[in-house]
Simulated scan of single mutants.
Amino acid sequence: MRFAPILALVATTLAAEKGFNYGATFSDGTIKHQADFEGEFNSAKNMVGNSFPSARLYTMIQGDTNGVIEAIPAAISTKTTLLLGLWASGGVDGFNAEVQHLADAVNQYGTAFTDLVVGISVGSEDVYRTTDLGIASNAGPGVAPNDLVNYVNQVKSAISGTGLSGKPVGHVDTYNTWTNTSYTAGLTAAVDFIGVDAYPYYESSKVTNGIENAQSIFWDDWNAVVAIAQGKPLWLTETGWPVEGPTVGQAVASVDNAARYYSEVGCQLFAANINTWWFTLQDQQPVAPAGGVIFAVTGPGLPPPTTPLYDLSCQ
């Protein structure tokens, strides 16, 4: 059994963030509002066995009002820390709107908001969607690395002199996108942190990806990014194992396998003090997500139940 070298595990803060990823809508496309986010954030903080007091977002825009996403006041009311996300694959005008809503949030909520922000992610898997693999997977529109460099610099300029000044600005992408250094080295140089998404469950094309190998696959992926990171800190922005879904290669979706993956990978990330946002608290509300793959650690219900589907205590 292989583990990541200690130096690869060292976090950049004394107290690492631990949370979940939160979309702007439910699985049926219904837009979330402040009360919905508050219910999710409170359930995550009070989850039996462990507390997850941080939230990673994907956009700054509330879809039905075109105002600031209502996850912001929800985070303020629940004292939930935030890895902000600005959606970068909606074209230049779309990204400019994201940046404007970031500025609006600072102006509207002040330090009650900015004190909760631990970082800002410019995009999510945008470069992956421009690669041959992303195109073959019909993953949708993406953004080339050089354009993302411009977006990163735009955000750094926009927050200069505000309450967000000095907050780290990074980008989130798949581990194998980051390791494609002929394509992404300039982006790696531009960011303050590297957000890594890694799912051994899906890695059927190159490895034997049954649950018994998932831990070593994950750390191999992680260390491959460490090797090209140019000294930038790595944050684990998405990983998990589904409780329901199709078999992918040798990877079987089940509650037992999700529990094992959490115990062998999640608990090690937490122990190593690495900023971690797990995928995910709840993704089957009110219906199963597209593709029928469910990564939720708790069952359906609004607000989400605080009793998880498997043990989260890391004992």
Rank of each mutant, 00 (worst) to 15 (best):
12 T>H: 12
19 G>K: 02
20 F>N: 01
20 F>D: 00
30 T>P: 09
30 T>V: 10
32 K>D: 08
42 N>D: 13
42 N>Y: 01
54 S>W: 07
56 R>A: 00
63 G>A: 02
67 G>W: 07
69 I>A: 05
84 L>C: 06
85 G>W: 00
93 D>W: 03
95 F>W: 12
96 N>A: 10
98 E>K: 05
101 H>F: 03
105 A>D: 03
109 Y>R: 02
113 F>C: 10
117 V>I: 06
119 G>R: 05
123 G>K: 01
130 T>W: 01
137 S>P: 06
139 A>K: 10
141 P>V: 07
146 N>I: 03
146 N>Y: 07
146 N>H: 06
154 Q>T: 15
154 Q>Y: 11
164 L>H: 10
173 D>T: 13
179 T>M: 13
197 D>L: 04
204 S>R: 11
207 V>F: 14
211 I>Q: 14
212 E>M: 03
219 W>Y: 14
227 A>S: 15
234 L>F: 06
239 T>P: 05
241 W>F: 10
245 G>H: 13
250 Q>C: 06
251 A>G: 07
256 D>P: 02
264 E>Q: 15
275 N>D: 15
276 T>I: 01
280 T>M: 03
284 Q>H: 15
288 A>N: 14
289 P>W: 10
290 A>F: 04
293 V>P: 02
293 V>H: 06
295 F>L: 14
301 G>I: 13
307 T>H: 02
313 S>W: 03
315 Q>W: 05
